[in-house]
């Protein structure tokens, strides 16, 4: 196999692993672990399109510092403690070797499990649109755009998806 093709496939596999790890970290509310996957210039957004008002909407938009602040304040808030579980399927990974970057599109389904009784319900569906940078041997998430199809989110959440 051509060396460049093999390298590209290795990167694609590592990108998939990074995305799945990011879900596991958030599922476990290991925010330090999740931030460990992110570059200093991270941009994180949650967006959706509203057919009601026919406009693009932004519901969360933070740089890395903003995400750190969000996580730091979480224990001081009154939150629904029902855990969220992310089910991700990485659809596409495109590696741009010349820029040491890769982009990925991932289908996302988020479930919520009630603490009392353990019933699980669908919370949201959407996609991750990620950009990843290769720094030496390390892949870092530089942007994550969570694009939601679901707009009716019950009582909402204090957690990123």
């Amino acid at each position: 196999m051509d060396t460049e093709i093999k390298a590209s496939r290795d990167v694609q596999e590592e990108v998939r692993e990074l995305i799945y790890r990011s879900c596991l970290y958030l599922d476990n509310q290991d925010f330090a672990g999740w931030l460990g996957l992110c570059a200093p210039d991270l941009r994180y957004t949650i967006t959706a399109y509203s057919p009601e008002i026919r406009k693009e909407m932004v519901w969360l938009d933070h740089d890395r510092e903003g995400m750190e602040s969000l996580f730091d304040m979480l224990p001081k808030h009154n939150s629904d403690h029902s855990p969220l579980t992310r089910h991700a399927s990485v659809y596409l990974v495109e590696h741009d070797g010349s820029a040491n970057e890769a982009s990925a599109v991932t289908s996302l389904v988020v479930y919520k499990t009630q603490l009392d009784g353990g019933a699980t319900e669908l919370f949201a569906v959407g996609k991750y649109f990620d950009t990843v940078r290769l720094e030496g041997e390390t892949l870092l998430l530089t942007s994550r755009s969570v694009r939601l199809d679901t707009r009716e989110l019950g009582i909402g959440s204090h957690l990123p998806l």
């Binding site: 519901w59 629904d80 989110l153 009582i155 909402g156």
Partner: peptide, 15 residues
């Protein structure tokens, strides 16, 4: 908004 700090708390309480 659905991910805002106060709205979630208010909705949690009325829930």
């Amino acid at each position: 908004g659905p991910f805002g700090r106060n709205l979630h708390e208010d909705l949690l309480a009325v829930h």
